[in-house]
């Protein structure tokens, strides 16, 4: 373990990477203020995949890596819809997932919001309509904000969350 601590001391904090520093600084300040105002300091997100290709999930996981480190802004991914303020929804709303997505939404305590992430929920990805797809998601749930991209990169997701916070 001593090797690890040595390495860590040498490496320091890498989150403030030069090319991201400016934009992150701006976002961080804005997010911090609105999260404090609306959600008593922290925003809890329940991510639900309704039939994506896993790329959006990979990018949401990347939000936790040392370069982005979303949690320092007071935004958390939580394990249960009952702990959540917001549902972050990816995927094309497959026929098989639709009832489960609605159930998860019902379990989120009010007030609650839906943010769709990626092109799939709006049926803008290259996938086409089949018997097994129920998208667009707007036919099933009220969506407050949409983060476009196939998939949106972590920074775009961060910016999207900020826009959502400005909206409400």
């Amino acid at each position: 373990m001593i090797k690890f601590w040595n390495k860590r001391a040498k490496l320091g904090v890498i989150t403030e990477k030069p090319e991201l520093e400016e934009s992150l600084k701006k976002i961080r300040k804005e997010i911090k203020e609105s999260v404090k105002k609306h959600f008593a300091g922290s925003l809890a997100i329940r991510m639900v995949d309704s039939g994506s290709c896993n790329a959006c999930e990979a990018e949401c996981n990347a939000l936790s890596n040392p370069y982005f480190d979303l949690e320092r802004l007071g935004i958390y991914f939580v394990a249960s819809p009952r702990h959540a303020d917001v549902m972050l929804l990816s995927g094309v709303m497959t026929f098989n997932m639709t009832p489960h997505v609605k159930e998860a939404y019902a379990q989120i305590p009010s007030p609650k919001w839906v943010i769709s992430v990626g092109d799939c929920p709006m049926m803008q990805a290259p996938y086409e309509r089949t018997y097994a797809i129920n998208a667009p998601v707007t036919e099933h749930l009220q969506v407050t904000h949409h983060i476009a991209g196939c998939p949106p990169n972590p920074l775009e997701i961060m910016e999207g969350l900020l826009e959502f916070l400005r909206k409400i």
Partner: peptide, 28 residues
């Protein structure tokens, strides 16, 4: 649960037009 009917989706398409869908079958 994530069954999208991709096999059916691609039927009747020209091979060139199928590529954007095939590359999104599994993001990883």
């Amino acid at each position: 649960y994530t069954h999208k009917g991709i096999e059916k989706m691609l039927e009747g398409k020209r091979l060139e037009d199928a590529k954007p869908i095939i590359e999104r079958i599994s993001g990883n």
